[in-house]
Design a protein around this nucleic acid. Structure first.
Lengths: 351, 351
DNA sequence: ATCACTTGTGGGAGCGCTCCCACGGTACCT
DNA sequence: AGGTACCGTGGGAGCGCTCCCACAAGTGAT
């Protein structure tokens, strides 16, 4: 590395000061132009912009962060409690939505994994160091201490699925309740009478909401709700297989199954096959997520699509709003925002 | 935001100076302890560490970056030319390997999407601003100008699949040639005689190597290589379907197909179904990637697994080595490193 | 005793930016 | 005419750190 004194002269990147000299103005003025301040005359602005272009000036992020006490970066924190997180396209889709929304801004995206204890510790350091202006939280469990840590540090945060109806953080979610209703109403509309439900992990709020939607849809259609038709799974394939086997034993007369995820449905399909039931002739099957698995299953799986990309985008919008609101400490106490996006039923051959 | 003067005193995060005062030493000494310099006496080090712990000191990244002219961050750049990138678990797996390897270090990971033109431009700014110490490149096409830009800026970079045999960047790849051989040898071992190949996009070097492996495996086993048995696809499902249909027309006697990706194989399966061929009875099918699709296909697909997580880890190791090497300008001209990792055939019902 | 090193340490200077105060100029009121 | 307001502008101070020079104290050879 060149010595301190030598840099800036010999080939180094141009600084604000150099741009100022070139444009024949002061440092402050260049800073104002760079940051889009309105208090600059048009002539001056043009001169500065020309100098910037000639010199190929690019602001030094570190210097800016140091002086302004902000980072222009947000973190996507992945608690990654299980590999399921990666096994489903959910993550990639969120990421895609987040990336798209971010490309309209100057913000950069940090990806932080916080699965292991060591990673957890590192994350705590990150947050304590305020290395990011805000945090996106995905796939958080009910008992995770992360959200509280964030509130304590007063770091703006948005969570992708609320942990409960009383979520304190700003949250974005799809309409799990409505999605489940869509699935069940679809099955009813197809003339199915005995509709079972394999739940997700019930410590996930969204999974609970899907159960609620299942129940209410049945009730509103005048069907009785039989708890023997509800078996809990854990979003995994094996869980789906097991739950399906149990259901078949308890209610061999069932003619439809609504599974809380596509992976669960894949497991259910196996159990149905093993029991000699044909899909959809004997038993109709509906999944949730509309993942790649749904399209490639045999037969292709009817599934409830969540607008995951839009969710990613919404998370960014809400987070950036919070970050901006935070700057002037006056306008605190903004009402908690909970955004819920609609789902859509994608019909395929399995139902 | 608090005024400049007021910070540091009132509740703000502790600074190096405050730690120094607390420990009764100078600023430089604390810096040395923080950075693990050996030129500190044990007693002093202990005192400083105690002060750090008491105050909960965490270094300010921005200040460090500004003073030291490094960022302690690397970027994973995703050219994301097509949605295929997200449709396959490849990306997530790389990410997982990268994340795991990174959690052993102080480096942070930036995720940069460079699919659209606007994103491209933003990326160029990033790189020009030297906002990262190094770059990880995944899924780069042969004609992408990105790698050259990186060399020009002298930013250390590692690429996930070399663009050609003459790749100038340090690269990590799986053994595409060997993987293809494994697939074909497996089919030969199963008694198949007329083995077709649906290629990937041939502007991707790895796809070319798979063709080479296919040819050589046949030749070495004493089979003739018939170009009528090779049809090019593009890694997509639709491409696989189309290619399979063409192959069936040209060589209806074929009894096995090696597809350059699982998605391609899924397309091929459709075409085989439509033509009334049973898998594996009439035609054996082997894919590549061992993605989730392979496990969920009907019948489950034999596929070539790439150690993608290990690849992610290897990329980090190589990149960090380059970043470290770069610090003293003396030891330049390090030999180009090309790392190739072995693949593994995962046998399933389709062959 | 002198000199030459070495080791551990303190602190000045500087990284490139933002923030803000001060100042000259112009415009508009009384 | 003087006062007041505001606009556009320049530049000092400071963000928290690293780098490096200087120096005191110790060590060993001469």
């Amino acid at each position: 590395m060149a010595s301190h004194g030598a840099r800036g002269r010999s080939g180094g990147r141009p600084t604000l000061e150099e741009v100022a000299a070139r444009a024949g103005v002061g440092r402050g003025t260049v800073s104002r132009v760079i940051n889009g301040s309105p208090r600059v005359s048009d002539a001056t602005r043009a001169a500065v912009e020309a100098a910037v272009a000639e010199l190929g000036y690019v602001p030094n992020t570190a210097a800016r962060a140091l002086a302004a006490n902000r980072t222009d970066a947000i973190a996507l924190v992945v608690p990654e409690p299980e590999t399921r997180f990666f096994a489903e396209p959910y993550f990639s889709d969120i990421l895609r939505g987040v990336g798209a929304a971010l490309s309209d801004t100057e913000m950069q995206l940090l990806l932080i994994f916080a699965g292991s204890d060591r990673e957890r510790q590192r994350l705590a350091q990150y947050l304590a160091a305020h290395r990011v202006d805000g945090v996106l939280l995905v796939s958080v469990h009910a008992d995770d201490p992360l959200p509280d840590m964030l509130s304590q540090l007063e770091i703006p945060a948005v969570i992708s699925g609320p942990r409960s109806a009383a979520e304190t953080l700003t949250s974005v979610d799809s309409d799990n309740y409505g999605g489940a209703r869509q699935a069940v109403e679809h099955l009813i509309g197809r003339g199915r009478r005995t509709i079972a439900h394999i739940t997700g992990r019930l410590d996930v709020y969204g999974a609970q909401r899907r159960v609620d939607g299942y129940r209410d849809a049945l009730r509103d259609a005048g069907h009785a709700v039989d708890d023997l038709l509800i078996e809990s799974g854990d979003f995994s394939e094996e869980g789906g297989r097991r739950a399906m086997a149990a259901l078949l034993e308890r209610r061999p007369d069932l003619d439809a199954v609504f599974a809380a995820s596509d992976v669960t449905a894949a497991g259910a399909r196996q159990a149905l096959r093993e029991a000699g039931r044909r899909i959809p002739d004997d038993v109709a099957l509906v999944g949730y997520d509309d993942s790649a698995i749904a399209r490639h299953m045999d037969p292709p799986l009817t599934s409830v699509r969540q607008p995951i990309q839009e969710m990613g985008r919404a998370m960014i919008d809400l987070l950036l709003a919070e970050v901006a609101d935070r700057r002037p400490p006056a306008s605190r106490g903004l009402e908690r925002r909970q955004m819920v996006l609609a789902t859509e039923l994608v019909g395929r051959a399995s139902s």
